[in-house]
């Protein structure tokens, strides 16, 4: 971090670029998580520390704004701070709400898949448990209890089904649109047996099958857009 003394023209802008690459604010991270969550077919890992930090920042800012108002700070400044808070609150809410929608949609699938269940936050797990109970009860009371014995499961069509074929699962084969952060060479996007790897340059946007790029999204090398 010697940028203070380095005021040379060429070196400085390169340094600047490097800084923007490495210094990503929580606001940016939250925006990225929100986008990914909105565009991914399945539920992603809950960003617990990011959500925690964003919450604290919002709270801190709200206190600051409260102090400003008491001290008779310029109303324009106050309103700008308030707008900034509102934007962050919107992102955070929309992020959490998107996750709740996915949980409601895939609750039985998430419940029986350990890898997915552990992606939920504790509050989300609580929510999922209650939704599952309510949904089960509702299905039983309204329909299942009136059907013959072999059709009484809320997970299976009938007792002869080998799998839980009444459970909605996210379609991992669906296509998503993603943008790369940096050069990614030889992506195995084609699983039909033909070797057809794809090179993606920074900023390229592609429609790809979610399944084939899932690890890259989880590791943050690709963003969904």
């Amino acid at each position: 971090m010697e940028s203070g003394s380095d005021k040379g023209t060429g070196g400085f802008s390169a340094m600047d670029e490097y800084e923007t690459l490495i210094s990503t604010t929580d606001a940016d991270l939250l925006k990225r998580s929100w986008r990914n969550e909105k565009a991914a077919p399945e539920i992603l890992q809950f960003e617990s520390s990011l959500v925690q930090r964003s919450r604290e920042q919002i709270q801190l800012m709200e206190e600051t704004v409260g102090e400003f108002m008491q001290n008779g700070e310029d109303p324009l400044t106050v309103s700008l701070y308030q707008m900034d808070i509102d934007r962050t609150v919107f992102l955070l809410r929309s992020y959490l709400r998107t996750r709740l929608q996915k949980i409601e949609k895939f609750m039985f699938h998430i419940q029986k898949t350990a890898g997915l269940w552990s992606r939920l936050s504790r509050q989300e797990q609580k929510f999922a448990k209650r939704s599952i109970e309510d949904m089960k009860k509702h299905l039983e009371q309204s329909v299942l209890s009136k059907l013959p014995d072999r059709y009484k499961s809320h997970l299976k069509q009938s007792v002869i089904s080998e799998e839980d074929d009444m459970v909605t699962e996210p379609k991992l084969d669906s296509f998503v649109i993603c943008r790369s952060r940096k050069f990614l060479g030889g992506l195995p996007v084609d699983d039909s047996g033909e070797e057809n790897p794809l090179d993606m340059y920074a900023g390229d946007i592609y429609a790809l099958r979610y399944k084939s790029i899932k690890p890259l999204i989880e590791s943050g090398q690709l963003d969904l857009v």
Partner: peptide, 13 residues
Amino acid sequence: TYAMKLNLSAMEV
């Protein structure tokens, strides 16, 4: 088509 390049703008995409 297993991959489709769409170097377009946000709204177009």
